[in-house]
Nucleic acid binder design. Structure first.
Lengths: 195, 195
DNA sequence: TTGACACCACTTCAGCCGTAGTACTATGTT
DNA sequence: AACATAGTACTACGGCTGAAGTGGTGTCAA
């Protein structure tokens, strides 16, 4: 079991690409080696089992998507009204959408977790923590809306991203922006205007 | 290319189970044969290619989930208020959730459509048609809310179902009912009460 | 020199495809 | 009633691909 962290990260990033491109079943040691352009056998030396590989990929995804402290701080500046929330949601949707392979890989992991109890547990905890962190952030920032608001935004926007990344013709790209705005306007009992 | 429709349907149902259980890559002619408990080679005789198989499974899913006319008619009875919508949404969520393997299979198809243009086109059209049908139904029934309302319900509830079926620990089962209610209450500008 | 890491080769194994070929059944014909 | 044919069901074989695992060699640095 090798330790070189840079190489390990590179392998996990390669695994994300493989997952997105080939699906869960396509995630093999060999495929990761090939994607990372390292000699055959390298991935085997870094991960004790395929199960292990799946789980580390799940963690890696969040490592890469985790908000930079800068963005977080920016959220705390300026007025705390609904427009602010809308802005933040646009940011999030675009940031996540931009990491297409990562998001698709996570979806593959979700489905794979149906078959791997250990992975399911890990993902559940990770995602629950993520939702909770969002709720806490929202509340501490004094943004309008409560925990339920955050959960609803989480659900609707996640599906929107999923749709956008898998079947872009269902909701055409140029309508996405307005759709995000609509989501926030309807979910947040509008303080200010009502249309 | 055999024609026996009952057998064909049985094979497609088997394919749904395989998709849900083994993932997209696991959907092979042999696996379908085994699942349907028919001799090896049968699926090959019914579907000209794997691509063809994927597409027919997509259609089959909707065949099986398509609302019975009874349910549709029931939606038109009684008052057309928000409580009615809530009720309908509970029905939908439960009906879809109950067809677990089907829903998981459709998610697999979505991800697979990333790699199969023909499948992507087929799914896009089918789903777009489904959304439109929901909007039309909603409007014609005189239920509160507009097209955007329906789309938002579609997005939020779909993700809710996805979460429920893949990572049930994120939103515990006994909170699902209230969550559905919350979704409707927040998305529909409440005519009547506001909390 | 020893140990950690990188790289390579070989063997083994499993799964799938496609096709060819056989058996069954129903239908229509003489 | 016997038979021929077509559509369908089933079986078996040959060949290919791709993955795993292991062991062995090379390289660099403490």
């Amino acid at each position: 079991m090798r330790q070189n962290p840079a190489r390990r990260a590179a392998l996990l990033d390669a695994a994300i690409e493989v997952l997105a491109r080939e699906g869960a079943r396509g995630l093999t040691f060999r495929a990761v080696d090939a994607e990372a352009a390292v000699p055959v056998g390298t991935a085997t030396n870094y991960f004790s089992s395929r199960d292990e590989l799946f789980m580390q990929v799940g963690l890696r995804f969040y490592e890469r998507l985790e908000p930079d402290a800068g963005v977080l701080a920016a959220g705390l500046a300026g007025p705390r009204d609904r427009d602010r929330v809308t802005e933040l949601m646009h940011d999030v949707v675009n940031r996540v959408s931009a990491f297409r392979s990562g998001y698709l890989a996570l979806l593959e992991l979700r489905l794979e977790s149906t078959r791997r109890p250990a992975l399911r547990e890990l993902l559940s905890e990770r995602i629950r923590a993520d939702v909770d962190a969002n709720i806490r952030y929202h509340e501490e920032a004094g943004l309008p809306g409560d925990a339920t608001t955050v959960v609803l935004l989480y659900m609707a926007l996640n599906w929107l991203i999923l749709e956008r990344l898998t079947l872009p013709d269902v909701f055409p790209e140029d309508g996405i922006h307005d759709l995000v705005t609509d989501v926030v306007e309807r979910v947040l009992p509008g303080p200010g205007r009502s249309g």
